[in-house]
Amino acid sequence: MPARPVVKRLPARRGLFAGFKGNVDAITIGLKYLVDPKRITLIYPNEYIKLDPGYRGFIVLEPKKCINCSSCARICPAAAMRMIRRMEEDPKTGKKKMKLWPVINYQRCIFCGYCVDVCPTEALYTVPYHDIVYENMAEMDWGLETFVKPPEYPTAKEGIPVKYIVDEEKGLVKVRAEEGEEE
């Protein structure tokens, strides 16, 4: 039974100088940061975070791998990924056949990544970015043609890619993503 409740007391605060010390401590800390701010602000979009490959961003379909099983649509919790019917020609036999293809509606997608994880052939993959602006809602409802290619990431053209690394002194430190230098 390693976990145990421990009754603690609030730190006592008595005497004439307790309040004085508290004030001095608070002001000292304030001034310390006034002199050395240790900022972590990201100046977006002049800078943008280059996310790790494992990040669950926008989802892209590789149609060659897709076996039209509709597992992704079945598991989608937001009903963003749904199947559409398409008449397609079979390359071998030349027969026309009805096939189901997934399409995604980014008005709804919550980026949970279930579809990627459930896909039996890894036909879906995520790209590590998701801050893309659309001019209207209709554009966010992707058809199959849009779904098969990674979306354009405009921020990457405008800004400097940065990365946050966990640091012992400052918490997070912003570094340039490519060189790995501290800014």
């Binding site: 304030g30 940061y33 006034l34 701010p37 240790k38 900022r39 972590i40 602000t41 100046i43």
Partner: peptide, 13 residues
Amino acid sequence: KATARVQRRLGPY
């Protein structure tokens, strides 16, 4: 600006 410095942000920029 000063508040922003203490609070680790940029302030008006």
